[in-house]
């Protein structure tokens, strides 16, 4: 069975078991390895992508559930908002090992899409599902605020 969807702006056809999690379709099927596996059970957020703009855990999202929808991964994060987040991440020198960071960046970009000026509580609510074993949380907070400010101009 084939599934059609849009990934990073391109129409793609996946010929995989429809129950395959989007995470593995991206990584093994399409070679988009920026999206990471951390737990496989919606506990860590390393696999966060955007589905129709919403931050979504790709490890528990079967590809049949995203047929016909728009998926954006860290490789395709080309919106002004996405770029602003990535710039702020570089400015604040957030990443350490880096393994969780695609998920962090994607979650932050989704947060800013719905909230131009997030409070600390908003940041907590949007980001508490994205674990970082290296403890980059302080800089993540700094970077989100900086990106929000840059986007507000």
């Amino acid at each position: 069975m084939t599934i059609d969807l849009t990934i990073n702006g391109e129409a793609r056809r996946l010929d995989l078991d429809p129950a395959t999690p989007l995470l593995w379709a991206l990584r093994d099927g399409l070679g988009l390895t920026g999206t990471k596996y951390g737990c496989g059970i919606a506990q860590c957020g390393a696999c966060t992508v955007h589905v129709d703009g919403e931050a979504t855990r790709s490890c528990i999202t079967p590809i049949e559930a995203v047929a016909g929808r728009r998926v954006v991964t860290v490789e395709g994060l080309s919106s002004a908002r996405g770029r602003a987040v990535q710039r702020a991440w570089i400015e604040a020198q957030v990443p350490q090992c880096g393994y969780c960071q695609s998920g962090q960046v994607m979650a932050a970009a989704a947060l800013l899409a719905g909230n131009a000026d997030p409070s600390d509580a908003d940041i907590d609510a949007a980001m508490s599902g994205i674990l970082c074993r290296c403890g980059t949380y302080g800089r993540i907070r700094t970077a989100i605020r900086a990106a929000a400010q840059a986007l507000r101009g």
Partner: peptide
């Protein structure tokens, strides 16, 4: 000096390669 890390750009755009990303 707090020079910028060389590994950071690849770690914000998904291009950094970990063993699990090797193709």
């Amino acid at each position: 000096r707090s020079l910028r890390r060389k590994d950071v750009p690849a770690k914000v755009d998904g291009s950094a390669v970990f063993a699990s990303d090797v193709r």
